[in-house]
Amino acid sequence: MTFRRAVVTGASSGIGWATVAHLVDRGWNVVGVARRADRLDELKNATGADVRVCDVTVQSDVDALAAYVAESGGADALVSNAGGALGLATVEESDVDDWARMFDVNVLGTKRVVSALLPVLRTSIEPGNAASLLAVTSIAGQVAYEKGGGYNAAKFAQRALLQVLRLELAGEPIRVIDVAPGLVHTEEFSLVRLGGDKAAADAVYADVPHPLTADDIAETIAHSLELPSHVNIDQVTVKPVAQAAPHKLVRGELKVTT
């Protein structure tokens, strides 16, 4: 692949930040996208990436992003990473506003950026190559678990969106890739989900031997994008060895049974 420019949403922290850094290190031209201008300035200074302020829940922001990408050279990869979880309560007791926000960011946000940037990706495809649409979903979109109803619902829907998109784009040189992480220890995910309760957020990862890092997922994303253009990773599920399922997590030392 000779032309390599990627647009990465949710780039102000965690997996998004790490993905921008990994791709830049590999020689990609990257546009890092997020809501927080101050964090994007830090990302630009740290990596040299191009950055754009954009809230994926605001259509006018997404339209402006697509126009900028088209006018500044196009792109051949979109990494739709913006998302997140809010709350950890039962279906009965959870806040419907949290559900609406999760659906807007994870599902409609992905739909907005895909719809806006697909035409840009098409015009950037070089002969013999393929464009890539990659979204970061979650194992929460594969297996339901107690008190995860809102996030489960959003991630199941996002996963379905990608499956439909893959069918609809069949016949075009456009890859649709689903990267589904398990437990990833980042600075903000659990903190945001648990309303800023640092003690509760820290407890999520306490005594878990080697939870995944943002760099682990960024490496997976970069690998998926850099495979030969005829190779499509439909879905890659990435969990730490200590996690057998969303609801089965080992705490304490991993031991070999003899």
Rank of each mutant, 00 (worst) to 15 (best):
G109K: 06
G27F: 03
T57N: 03
D76H: 11
T110N: 15
L88M: 14
D95F: 05
T123F: 04
A77F: 03
Y68M: 08
D61P: 09
T19Y: 04
W99F: 15
A82L: 04
I125K: 11
D50C: 06
V91H: 14
A85E: 12
Q59Y: 00
D104R: 14
A21E: 15
A37K: 13
R35A: 05
D38T: 06
T19E: 04
D95V: 08
A85F: 10
A89C: 04
D25Q: 14
G74Q: 04
V96D: 14
L43H: 06
G109F: 02
W17I: 00
V51A: 08
M102T: 09
G109M: 03
R36Q: 12
S13A: 14
V113F: 12
G14V: 03
G128S: 12
V91M: 14
L43D: 06
K111G: 07
G73K: 01
Y68D: 13
G109N: 10
S13M: 08
S94Q: 15
S60E: 15
G83L: 10
L121E: 11
L121S: 10
A77V: 05
T57P: 03
A37H: 14
L118I: 12
T90I: 06
A37V: 12
V53K: 11
A67G: 06
D55N: 13
A37F: 02
L65N: 05
D104W: 09
V96W: 15
G27S: 04
D25P: 01
V69T: 02
S80F: 09
G27H: 02
W99C: 04
V31E: 04
N81G: 04
G74R: 05
D95W: 00
I125S: 11
T90S: 15
A18E: 09
L118R: 14
V62D: 08
E126H: 13
A46C: 06
T47L: 03
V113W: 14
G74Y: 07
V120K: 13
K44G: 12
V56A: 01
D61L: 00
A67S: 13
D76L: 04
G83N: 08
T57V: 09
E93T: 14
V58L: 09
V58T: 11
D38P: 07
N81D: 10
N81P: 07
D55R: 07
T110G: 15
N29W: 05
A89I: 00
A67I: 01
D50W: 05
V113M: 12
E92L: 14
R39I: 00
K44P: 00
G32Q: 02
V120G: 12
D97F: 05
S72R: 12
W17H: 13
N81L: 01
R52N: 00
L43E: 06
T19A: 07
L23Y: 11
V58G: 00
G16H: 07
A46L: 08
N29Q: 11
T19F: 02
M102I: 10
S12T: 12
G48P: 04
D63E: 14
G84C: 05
D41H: 12
